[in-house]
Amino acid sequence: MSPGFSGRRQPAGPKLPPGQYLTQDFPVLSAGPTPRVPLDTWEFTVITETGERHTWSWAELTALPAEDVTVDIHCVTKWSKLQTHWRGVPIATLLDDVETAADFALAHSYGGYTTNVPLDDLLDGQAWIAYEFEGEPLAPEHGGPARLLVPHLYFWKSAKWVRGLQLLLEDEPGFWETAGYHDYGDPWREQRYQGD
């Protein structure tokens, strides 16, 4: 074994995208105050490109068939956390009855955060509205009562405190994407910043 490797703090395993290190914690990164959204007024709205609205209350969302998923998550600030357990409703289920020709979605959050994701990346078992983490209700500092979960993209795409999806014919960059971050954000291609 090369002695050069012995001093490495966090050796990158085969499961980690380039430039990431493994953490056991769940770091909290915020761009603003943590919204506290009471469940009796919480709602989730899909707005199509024609302005048609589809809204779910908390009771309606949690009555939908949910999935338990175990996924690795990768933050653009370079930490990765493996084998995290979530429960939530697949985005595809919410879009079942939604007529749209959109190719893009802009997620909106309580508190004003936004992030853009191609619509195809939200379908086919790739994205959920998650409301449980490790068997417990999702805590506010981690995005509760519900957050978007899109684990195959950098975690800034998994919008905390999500309140809706705006379906769009043209891509519209969100909060970090308008300030230098990559439009797509694939951790395996290390798409951190614009131009990566």
Binding site: A31, T77, W156, W176, Y181
Partner: peptide
């Protein structure tokens, strides 16, 4: 100022209206 501690960037918010 949010995000000062290893966040993706720093975000400065109004002390009056956030």
């Amino acid at each position: 100022v949010y995000g000062h501690d290893h966040g993706p960037g720093v975000v400065g918010r109004c002390p009056g209206c956030d």
